[in-house]
Design a binder for these strands. Sequence first.
DNA 1: CAATCAAACTTGACACTGTCAAGATAAGTC
DNA 2: GACTTATCTTGACAGTGTCAAGTTTGATTG
Lengths: 210, 210
Amino acid sequence: MPDEVFMKTPATPPRRPRDGTLRTALVDAGVALLRTRGPDGLSLRECAAQAGVSHAAPAYHFKNLAGLSTAIAARGYSLFCTAMTARLARAANSPTARLNAICHGYLDFASAHPELFLFIFSGQQLDKENDDFAQHSSNAYGILREACAPFVQPGAEPEEVEILVWSVVHGYAHLTMIHKADNPKFRENWPKLDLLLEHLDRALETAVKT
Amino acid sequence: MPDEVFMKTPATPPRRPRDGTLRTALVDAGVALLRTRGPDGLSLRECAAQAGVSHAAPAYHFKNLAGLSTAIAARGYSLFCTAMTARLARAANSPTARLNAICHGYLDFASAHPELFLFIFSGQQLDKENDDFAQHSSNAYGILREACAPFVQPGAEPEEVEILVWSVVHGYAHLTMIHKADNPKFRENWPKLDLLLEHLDRALETAVKT
DNA sequence: CAATCAAACTTGACACTGTCAAGATAAGTC
DNA sequence: GACTTATCTTGACAGTGTCAAGTTTGATTG
């Protein structure tokens, strides 16, 4: 290739696009690392290597490992939202159908991205002041809040229903993911989500009637 | 100090008791580290330093960092059991009173040892073949199973009730701990556990009646 | 068009980590 | 009292996060 003097980009690596390309590439690498190497496999240097940049490049965009972790968690919440809205789109228009739909979406996300689900709720220090994270996580809660609204009795706090619903579906999803690799005897009798939702729906109905 | 030749113990540190002293001291140090420095503050070398031994001493007793983590998790499950049985001892003898008691015990443990609670359920790789861990964790589940037994309908799988109850209380406890440091506006309207238990008890009652 | 400037990295260093191999030392046993 | 073995220590190595300083490069400006 004799005319490499003409093309300035291939000679020196064309990294410097002044958009967020590297940012998203690093988050992609982080998600992949979590999936392939487990919760402890995430590392700034390995993300940098997978993205083809030097070991200190991630620190420029994310400051800390906590910063990268927060960006990964924000990505997770974004996928969370799409999973729930996807189920909502196919649901009937009744309040209980919509409530059950977002619960199934919650579990869909956990099943499709167990490493991200556990990562988000691992209790590690995330930068909750971060705009991206705050927006996506509050979006997710907003979807839950909307689906719960029809079951809030007049004069009652909406959180009473929201935290009840959230507790049931989150507890079920979390325990399911935590015990995913456990002995099959335990997993064989593991009840389906719909079985819990029957109880939940009944509890919310009776609560309205009384 | 001229007569240091007489006292052999102070010259060379008297470490070698051939019982599990160092083991428990290292687990103590690990629990303390988790509390003071957060989920990422656990380290074999720091545990060794706090216990006053060399940096490689923990590897002899626990093989891996995963081994130490498993021992810490086993300690957590043990405290889990004592928290639930303590509430059971003070509970009335009705099935619902006993069920609510273990749920409160579950939350007691999470509130008293948030770092251990989150550590146990952080989804990291623990050695579930380990005898100590297996025994204590199955003990904890046994307590739950016993309290749920009166609500299992004849012919039904006990897991249906157990996972329902476990999901509700675990989801509530986990979400509470995860959002402990969040904005106070959220925490102000956070419902009490008893409010969820009312719904749970009612759901189990109606399930029996139908 | 050339000089400048700041954004987007790279390079190098440091302290810290887990893990392994090899050695030391004391406890218990015969 | 010699031997064996459990319990550590010492030393080394690769890998990690983080910081400081330099370097390249796209854009801006005179």
